[in-house]
Protein backbone atom coordinates (compact mmCIF):
# COMPACT_ATOMS: atom_id res chain seq x y z
CA UNK A 1 0.00 0.00 0.00
CA UNK A 2 1.55 3.31 -0.99
CA UNK A 3 -0.37 5.41 1.49
CA UNK A 4 1.58 8.61 1.16
CA UNK A 5 -0.41 11.54 2.32
CA UNK A 6 -0.56 14.41 -0.07
CA UNK A 7 0.29 12.17 -3.05
CA UNK A 8 -3.05 12.99 -4.43
CA UNK A 9 -5.12 15.86 -3.22
CA UNK A 10 -8.35 14.33 -4.35
CA UNK A 11 -7.71 11.06 -2.51
CA UNK A 12 -10.48 10.48 0.02
CA UNK A 13 -10.21 7.17 1.85
CA UNK A 14 -12.89 5.29 3.72
CA UNK A 15 -11.17 3.00 6.20
CA UNK A 16 -13.19 0.06 7.52
CA UNK A 17 -11.75 -1.71 10.57
CA UNK A 18 -13.00 -4.93 12.13
CA UNK A 19 -10.31 -5.28 14.80
CA UNK A 20 -8.84 -8.54 16.03
CA UNK A 21 -12.04 -10.55 15.73
CA UNK A 22 -14.29 -11.11 12.72
CA UNK A 23 -17.33 -9.24 11.51
CA UNK A 24 -18.29 -10.66 8.12
CA UNK A 25 -21.66 -8.91 8.12
CA UNK A 26 -19.87 -5.55 8.15
CA UNK A 27 -17.38 -6.52 5.43
CA UNK A 28 -20.25 -7.85 3.29
CA UNK A 29 -22.21 -4.64 3.84
CA UNK A 30 -19.38 -2.38 2.70
CA UNK A 31 -18.55 -4.69 -0.20
CA UNK A 32 -22.04 -4.42 -1.70
CA UNK A 33 -22.33 -2.61 -5.02
CA UNK A 34 -24.96 -0.13 -3.87
CA UNK A 35 -22.87 0.82 -0.84
CA UNK A 36 -19.78 1.40 -2.94
CA UNK A 37 -21.82 3.49 -5.35
CA UNK A 38 -23.10 5.52 -2.42
CA UNK A 39 -19.53 6.17 -1.23
CA UNK A 40 -18.44 7.17 -4.73
CA UNK A 41 -21.38 9.57 -5.03
CA UNK A 42 -20.31 11.16 -1.74
CA UNK A 43 -16.91 11.87 -3.28
CA UNK A 44 -14.84 9.09 -1.71
CA UNK A 45 -12.17 7.58 -3.92
CA UNK A 46 -10.79 4.64 -1.91
CA UNK A 47 -12.21 1.94 0.29
CA UNK A 48 -9.70 0.14 2.50
CA UNK A 49 -10.92 -2.79 4.59
CA UNK A 50 -9.14 -4.33 7.58
CA UNK A 51 -11.06 -7.60 7.77
CA UNK A 52 -9.50 -9.32 10.81
CA UNK A 53 -10.28 -13.03 11.17
CA UNK A 54 -13.31 -12.87 8.93
CA UNK A 55 -13.85 -15.46 6.21
CA UNK A 56 -15.72 -13.25 3.76
CA UNK A 57 -13.20 -11.80 1.31
CA UNK A 58 -14.22 -8.59 -0.46
CA UNK A 59 -13.50 -7.95 -4.13
CA UNK A 60 -10.47 -5.84 -4.90
CA UNK A 61 -10.78 -3.10 -7.45
CA UNK A 62 -8.22 -0.80 -9.04
CA UNK A 63 -10.71 1.97 -9.16
CA UNK A 64 -10.39 3.89 -12.38
CA UNK A 65 -13.61 5.81 -12.64
CA UNK A 66 -15.22 4.22 -9.63
CA UNK A 67 -14.16 3.46 -6.06
CA UNK A 68 -10.83 1.69 -5.54
CA UNK A 69 -11.15 -1.21 -3.10
CA UNK A 70 -8.36 -2.89 -1.17
CA UNK A 71 -8.23 -5.06 1.93
CA UNK A 72 -5.87 -6.69 4.43
CA UNK A 73 -6.30 -8.89 7.51
CA UNK A 74 -4.12 -7.25 10.17
CA UNK A 75 -1.66 -4.41 10.35
CA UNK A 76 0.56 -2.98 13.03
CA UNK A 77 0.05 0.51 11.66
CA UNK A 78 -3.68 0.98 12.17
CA UNK A 79 -2.92 4.48 13.46
CA UNK A 80 -1.47 5.48 10.07
CA UNK A 81 -4.55 4.21 8.28
CA UNK A 82 -6.75 6.17 10.66
CA UNK A 83 -4.73 9.32 10.07
CA UNK A 84 -4.97 9.11 6.30
CA UNK A 85 -8.69 8.29 6.26
CA UNK A 86 -11.47 10.80 5.61
CA UNK A 87 -14.11 8.53 7.06
CA UNK A 88 -13.64 5.62 9.46
CA UNK A 89 -16.15 2.80 9.79
CA UNK A 90 -15.35 0.69 12.84
CA UNK A 91 -16.60 -2.44 14.51
CA UNK A 92 -18.08 -1.37 17.86
CA UNK A 93 -15.88 -3.95 19.57
CA UNK A 94 -12.98 -1.63 18.88
CA UNK A 95 -14.36 0.61 21.60
CA UNK A 96 -12.71 -1.46 24.29
CA UNK A 97 -12.76 -5.22 24.45
CA UNK A 98 -9.72 -7.41 24.54
CA UNK A 99 -8.39 -5.68 21.54
CA UNK A 100 -4.64 -5.49 21.71
CA UNK A 101 -3.72 -4.83 18.12
CA UNK A 102 -5.77 -1.72 17.61
CA UNK A 103 -6.56 -0.83 21.13
CA UNK A 104 -9.36 1.66 21.46
CA UNK A 105 -9.39 2.44 17.75
CA UNK A 106 -12.56 4.40 18.25
CA UNK A 107 -11.12 6.79 20.83
CA UNK A 108 -8.01 7.16 18.69
CA UNK A 109 -10.24 8.09 15.74
CA UNK A 110 -12.21 10.57 17.82
CA UNK A 111 -9.05 12.17 19.16
CA UNK A 112 -7.79 12.57 15.59
CA UNK A 113 -11.01 14.41 14.85
CA UNK A 114 -11.98 11.93 12.12
CA UNK A 115 -15.52 11.31 11.04
CA UNK A 116 -16.63 7.98 12.38
CA UNK A 117 -19.40 5.45 11.98
CA UNK A 118 -19.47 2.67 14.57
CA UNK A 119 -21.16 -0.55 13.54
CA UNK A 120 -22.64 -2.77 16.23
CA UNK A 121 -22.46 -6.54 15.87
CA UNK A 122 -25.76 -7.85 17.13
CA UNK A 123 -24.59 -11.47 17.00
CA UNK A 124 -22.34 -10.98 20.01
CA UNK A 125 -23.80 -12.26 23.25
CA UNK A 126 -22.54 -9.68 25.69
CA UNK A 127 -23.44 -6.68 23.64
CA UNK A 128 -22.48 -3.91 26.00
CA UNK A 129 -20.43 -2.33 23.21
CA UNK A 130 -23.61 -0.80 21.82
CA UNK A 131 -24.19 1.07 25.10
CA UNK A 132 -21.17 3.27 24.55
CA UNK A 133 -21.64 3.57 20.79
CA UNK A 134 -25.21 4.76 21.30
CA UNK A 135 -24.21 7.16 24.07
CA UNK A 136 -21.49 8.71 21.90
CA UNK A 137 -23.97 8.86 19.00
CA UNK A 138 -26.51 10.63 21.23
CA UNK A 139 -23.81 13.15 22.05
CA UNK A 140 -23.19 13.54 18.30
CA UNK A 141 -19.55 12.46 18.36
CA UNK A 142 -20.17 9.68 15.86
CA UNK A 143 -22.82 7.76 13.96
CA UNK A 144 -23.98 4.38 15.17
CA UNK A 145 -25.28 1.76 12.74
CA UNK A 146 -26.03 -1.92 12.24
CA UNK A 147 -24.66 -3.76 9.18
CA UNK A 148 -28.10 -3.70 7.55
CA UNK A 149 -28.63 0.02 8.22
CA UNK A 150 -25.11 1.17 7.33
CA UNK A 151 -26.10 2.04 3.78
CA UNK A 152 -28.91 4.27 5.00
CA UNK A 153 -26.65 5.90 7.60
CA UNK A 154 -24.10 6.82 4.96
CA UNK A 155 -26.82 8.11 2.61
CA UNK A 156 -28.37 10.31 5.32
CA UNK A 157 -25.33 11.42 7.28
CA UNK A 158 -24.42 15.04 7.67
CA UNK A 159 -20.81 14.91 8.76
CA UNK A 160 -20.76 18.60 9.60
CA UNK A 161 -23.30 18.07 12.36
CA UNK A 162 -20.84 15.93 14.34
CA UNK A 163 -19.31 17.59 17.41
CA UNK A 164 -15.62 17.33 18.30
CA UNK A 165 -14.74 14.89 21.07
CA UNK A 166 -12.86 16.38 23.98
CA UNK A 167 -10.60 13.70 25.50
CA UNK A 168 -11.33 12.74 29.09
CA UNK A 169 -9.25 13.51 32.12
CA UNK A 170 -8.20 11.18 34.94
CA UNK A 171 -7.24 13.89 37.45
CA UNK A 172 -10.61 13.84 39.29
CA UNK A 173 -10.09 10.12 40.06
CA UNK A 174 -6.51 10.71 41.19
CA UNK A 175 -7.67 13.56 43.42
CA UNK A 176 -10.39 11.45 45.05
CA UNK A 177 -8.01 8.54 45.67
CA UNK A 178 -5.47 10.92 47.24
CA UNK A 179 -8.10 12.50 49.43
CA UNK A 180 -9.44 9.11 50.50
CA UNK A 181 -5.99 7.99 51.60
CA UNK A 182 -5.33 11.25 53.42
CA UNK A 183 -2.75 12.69 51.03
CA UNK A 184 -2.93 16.49 50.88
CA UNK A 185 -4.20 18.19 47.72
CA UNK A 186 -1.46 19.74 45.65
Amino acid sequence: MGDHEGDDRTRRVVFVTVGTTSFDALVKAVDSLTFKQELASKGYTHLLIQMGRGSYVPTKSEGGNSLAVDYFTFSSSIADHLKSASLVISHAENLVGNNELNMSTIFETLRLGKRLIVVVNEDLMDNHQSELAEELADRKHLYCARPQTLHQTVADMDLNSLLPYIPGDATPVAKLINRFLGFPDD
Binding site: L95, V96, E100, A170, V173, A174
Partner: peptide
Protein backbone atom coordinates in the same frame (compact mmCIF):
# COMPACT_ATOMS: atom_id res chain seq x y z
CA UNK B 1 -6.87 -3.85 25.80
CA UNK B 2 -9.02 -0.84 26.52
CA UNK B 3 -8.96 -1.54 30.25
CA UNK B 4 -5.18 -1.17 30.27
CA UNK B 5 -5.44 2.01 28.20
CA UNK B 6 -7.78 3.54 30.77
CA UNK B 7 -5.57 2.46 33.67
CA UNK B 8 -2.50 3.98 32.01
CA UNK B 9 -4.40 7.25 31.67
CA UNK B 10 -4.98 7.19 35.41
CA UNK B 11 -1.35 6.30 36.15
CA UNK B 12 -0.21 9.20 34.00
CA UNK B 13 -1.72 11.70 36.44
CA UNK B 14 -1.19 9.92 39.74
CA UNK B 15 1.66 11.08 42.04
Amino acid sequence: GGHTAEMLNLLAVIQ
